[in-house]
Amino acid sequence: MRRAVLALSILAIGAALLAVLTTMIDDRPAPRREPAPRQSFDRAPLAASLAAAGHRLGDAAHVRIYKQEARLELWLEAADGRYRLFRSYEICAFSGDLGPKFREGDRQAPEGFYKVRTAQLNPASRHHLAFNLGFPNEYDRQHGRTGSALMVHGGCSSVGCYAITDAHVDEVYAVVEAALRQGQDGVDVHVFPFAMSPDAVAAAEAADHPHADFWANLLEGHALFVRTGRPPGVAACNGRYVFDRRDAGCEPIMGWQA
């Protein structure tokens, strides 16, 4: 009888540990699952909307995320080389508070400058479709931050990711995938705590917010995009983001402008 009770206790402890571990990684590949939902997505309405806006599947893409406003923006490169907003999507769920991600398992959605390449696409996601943000980037590593499988995905649940529903991720994923297939080196994804402005960051500084300096650094990259209409080159230099310059010893994160 005691042996049976002991065995049941061991099984219960094992199940509890497994439950904890599964919450630490929000999106793991499911190699045996066929990406049937993706095959059923009718791209014709999306293609028509793109054409009406002067775009097509395969145009260079850029993604911008604003946590507080729960908004994901999809930008596309126009004929003049500047990026223009194509469509905004509501973020159905993200976890954590305003501020960066620090460590594996803290259930915090990251903020910063990331790049999505083809290898980061997951058509067999357990959340319908997903793409990995690439956290930690070089900046995160310089600060000793840890984490894995931080995604933009479908559904409406999150443990450190950005969920935008299946219907919305169908569109965003299709545009990102097509841009990469047409030769874009990587799709830049910029993640901000809120709609960035000097006043908003100054308010955080005046309140002595612990992330105010980090947000002021993010504002530099945000302002450069607003001014030029193009995602800037980004590098990590001595624990800070720098933009469109090649300082000695910096670690590039995403492409440099000519």
Results as ranks from 00 to 15, higher is better:
residue 137 N to K: 10
residue 138 E to L: 04
residue 137 N to I: 11
residue 141 R to S: 04
residue 149 A to D: 05
residue 124 A to F: 12
residue 136 P to F: 01
residue 152 V to K: 00
residue 130 A to R: 02
residue 132 N to D: 15
residue 143 H to N: 08
residue 137 N to W: 05
residue 127 H to G: 03
residue 133 L to W: 10
residue 138 E to V: 02
residue 130 A to P: 08
residue 155 G to A: 12
residue 121 L to T: 14
residue 144 G to H: 13
residue 142 Q to A: 11
residue 139 Y to Q: 09
residue 152 V to Q: 03
residue 154 G to C: 06
residue 156 C to W: 07
residue 139 Y to W: 13
residue 142 Q to L: 12
residue 128 H to F: 09
residue 123 P to Y: 06
residue 135 F to A: 05
residue 138 E to R: 11
residue 122 N to V: 09
residue 149 A to Q: 05
residue 156 C to V: 10
residue 135 F to Q: 09
residue 131 F to C: 11
residue 147 G to A: 01
residue 150 L to F: 00
residue 139 Y to A: 05
residue 144 G to K: 10
residue 129 L to R: 07
residue 125 S to M: 10
residue 130 A to Y: 06
residue 144 G to F: 10
residue 123 P to M: 15
residue 147 G to W: 03
residue 134 G to P: 06
residue 142 Q to C: 12
residue 148 S to N: 09
residue 121 L to C: 14
residue 150 L to K: 05
residue 122 N to T: 13
residue 145 R to V: 04
residue 122 N to H: 09
residue 130 A to N: 08
residue 122 N to D: 15
residue 123 P to S: 14
residue 134 G to L: 13
residue 143 H to D: 03
residue 122 N to E: 15
residue 139 Y to H: 14
residue 125 S to H: 07
residue 156 C to L: 07
residue 123 P to W: 13
residue 148 S to Q: 14
residue 128 H to K: 09
residue 138 E to M: 01
residue 121 L to V: 12
residue 143 H to V: 06
residue 147 G to M: 01
residue 133 L to V: 12
residue 128 H to L: 01
residue 155 G to H: 13
residue 124 A to C: 15
residue 127 H to F: 14
residue 153 H to I: 11
residue 130 A to W: 07
residue 125 S to L: 10
residue 146 T to A: 06
residue 124 A to G: 12
residue 127 H to I: 08
residue 130 A to E: 08
residue 148 S to L: 06
residue 124 A to D: 15
residue 153 H to R: 10
residue 125 S to A: 15
residue 124 A to K: 15
residue 136 P to I: 03
residue 146 T to R: 08
residue 121 L to Y: 12
residue 125 S to K: 02
residue 130 A to T: 08
residue 129 L to M: 11
residue 121 L to M: 15
residue 124 A to P: 01
residue 146 T to F: 02
